[in-house]
Structure formats: C-alpha cells, structure tokens
C-alpha cells in the first residue's frame, strides 16, 4: 500500500476545496497518460492526486459567438470529432488526431497536454497559432486568463502555482477567411513523438496572405512563433516563389533555434518536407504544385 491519497472532486467548488490544501506533493490528474508514467518512473509513493476527470464541466466543448471553449479535461478524441473545431480550428484537430494512439487520444486531455508542457507536444503549437487563451482557477475560487504562450515556461515547466488548475482553453472564432494547418514529423507515420512540428494560421484575401502565424515545435525547450517566416510571407501574393521563400526562411529559423544540437543537420533539411505539407495544405487550392526534386 502506498501513502497516496486521491481526491475526486465532482464540481468546480469541490475542486477549489482540494486546491486549498495543495502542497508540493499534490498532483493534478487528468487523462493520466503522462502523469502515471511519471509517478512510476520517479518512484513517487506519497502525495495527493486530484482527479479532474470527474468534473463534468471540465469535459465539455462549448462555444459562443466569439470563442470555442474547451474544457481542460476534454480528450483529444473529443476534439477531433467536434464540428466547431473542425471548422474553426483545423490545425488543432489535425494535431490532436496525430497525438499518440487511439487509446491515448481517448484518455489524454488538452489541459493535461498544456500542463505537461512537453517541448514536442503537438497540440501546443496549434494552440499558439490559434491565439488560444487559458483560463486558470485559483484556490480562492477566482480565475484568470492568459495566452497559452505565457503559461508554458519551458520543457516540462509551466507557470501554474500548486493551488491552481487549468480549467478551460478558449479559441477565438476568426472570420471565415481564416485557414490553418498542422504537420509533424516523427519516426513512424503514426504513434510517434514529433521530431519537428509546425502549425500555421493565416487569412487569405484575394490571393494575398494576411495575418499569418507560424509556430514551430520540438525545436528547443518550447514551441515558438517563427516571426521571420511570418514576415517573409505576410502581405504577399500566394505563389511558387513565395513557397521557396517560406521554405528557406524556415530552414534559417531551425538554424537559429538549435545551433548546437546534433539533430540540426537533419532538422534543417527535413523542415522542408513539413514546409511543403503545411504550405500546400494552407494554400494548395491557390497555387499550382509543381515543385520538383531531381
């Protein structure tokens, strides 16, 4: 028998009560797909687990005129089948459908993925590209909301205090011109940890790219916006030449992100494959695909 306790709040109010008693040995348990491995590998036999999956409110995906609101304990399986998300947050749906296996997607949650802050996480670049906001509940029952990028500090590090819990992720509903895409590269075609991933959102008006966001993951300790890449294609007309600029700028971005890593040699080349995947996924219908390699 371990010296572990599990608390099973059924409502936000009960969760607040649990958070009030949080200490350094308190772990928020959501889908469990990362935490349970950690408890075992790190030989953690003492402490308190707070199970978030019993709170119905946290498992809903709702929307209003401005936001799609994803409960922190909604699973990736729920995300991939949600029609609102398919319409307004394609890159998140694409990323979610490529996370782990069927079994993992049935358990793992968006809130858990954010809190875990893994550098190679697939959902996080998509959320950054979508300007997602994260709502956090404090033990005094108040909440605050921050952009996703500000929650994640680095590899396996987030800004949450012990007595706080992510409860909701809000994705602004952009206009109908907004498009998005996600692509990843791992060691297998499926069930694989990203060596590289990329999420992009853009608005296209009369063949011109506007308001573009390009986010790279699995390069360094946290996903980041590739500003120079965005600059290279923003307010430009979609064309093959632009694709080349996009690709080359991405290579530069990889060079800058991981100058001393042994994986640089591969990643700076392979990013071209992802560049093609994402560019043509986004703008494919607007550009003739004739790129050759011979």
């Amino acid at each position: 028998m371990s010296n572990m306790i599990m608390k099973t709040p059924a409502s936000i109010d009960e969760l607040v009560m649990c958070l009030k008693q949080s200490d350094d040995n308190t772990y928020l348990l959501s889908g469990g797909t990362d935490l349970i491995i950690k408890l075992r590998n790190s030989k953690i036999y003492e402490g308190t687990l707070i199970d978030l999956t019993g709170i119905d409110d946290l498992k809903q995906i709702k929307y209003n005129a401005e936001y799609i609101k994803i409960g922190a304990a909604a699973t990736f399986n729920q995300i991939t089948s949600n029609t609102m998300l398919i319409k307004h947050a394609k890159c998140l749906v694409q990323a979610s459908s490529q996370i782990g296996s069927t079994q993992i997607r049935n358990a793992a949650t968006l809130g858990g993925n954010i809190a875990n802050a893994f550098a190679g996480a697939d959902a996080i670049p998509a959320l950054i590209a979508l300007d997602a906001m994260v709502t956090i509940l404090k033990s005094d029952k108040t909440t605050y909301t921050k952009p996703i990028d500000e929650i994640i500090k680095g590899s396996r590090k987030n800004t949450l205090y012990k007595d706080e819990a992510i409860i909701e992720i809000s994705i602004p509903i952009a206009n109908d011109n907004c498009i998005s895409a996600f692509a990843k590269l791992g060691s297998r075609s499926r069930v694989t940890i990203s060596k590289l991933n990329i999420a992009a959102t853009a608005q296209v008006k009369d063949g011109t790219i506007e308001a573009v966001k390009i986010v790279l993951g699995a390069l360094g300790t946290k996903a980041f916006r590739a500003l120079s890449v965005e600059k290279a294609i923003e307010n430009k007309d979609i064309s093959e030449a632009l694709y080349t600029a996009f690709e080359n700028e991405l290579v530069k971005q990889v060079d800058e992100a991981i100058p001393n890593r042994s994986s640089l040699g591969y990643k700076r080349e392979a990013i071209r494959g992802l560049a093609e995947d994402v560019y043509f996924d986004l703008f494919g219908s607007m550009v003739r695909k004739v790129k050759c390699h011979d």
Partner: peptide, 9 residues
C-alpha cells in the same frame, strides 16, 4: 522514399 524527410515507406 520521401526525399525531403528521409522517411521510407
């Protein structure tokens, strides 16, 4: 062979 990523199927 995916000549851009080196993946082989």
């Amino acid at each position: 062979v995916d000549t851009m990523t080196g993946m082989v199927r």
